[in-house]
């Protein structure tokens, strides 16, 4: 698996399970708008439109809380991409 997992998202700890996890986050190169955090460029592709955005907050009661701002965007090449910004540890990841 390339890249590292973000925000301890899976909660599944064994090495074998990590290796076999589906839809694991992969690090992405994203340039975002400084005012509202909207992605402008994802992995070198310009963002044409933002389809949806949502916030995921989970495990806030534990020592490894998870806070992500998800963006579903369409790039200029027509690809539908889901990326998120890890609001705790920073960094952008794609997840589709």
């Amino acid at each position: 698996m390339r890249g590292r997992s973000a925000g301890g998202g899976a909660g599944l700890t064994s090495a074998a399970v990590r290796r076999h996890r589906l839809a694991a986050p992969r690090r992405a190169r994203v340039r975002a708008d400084e005012r509202d955090g909207r992605p402008l460029l994802v992995d070198g592709r310009e963002v044409d439109a933002v389809r949806e955005s949502w916030l995921v907050e989970d495990r806030w009661w534990s020592e490894r809380p998870l806070r992500r701002r998800y963006w579903e965007v369409v790039t200029t090449c027509g690809r539908n991409v889901v990326v998120f910004h890890d609001l705790r540890e920073g960094g952008w990841f794609r997840q589709r």
């Binding site: 076999h20 589906l22 839809a23 995921v56």
Partner: peptide, 10 residues
């Protein structure tokens, strides 16, 4: 709501 928790390969 966290995609990587939904499924694993077995």
């Amino acid at each position: 709501r966290v995609p990587e928790r939904r499924a694993v390969l077995t």
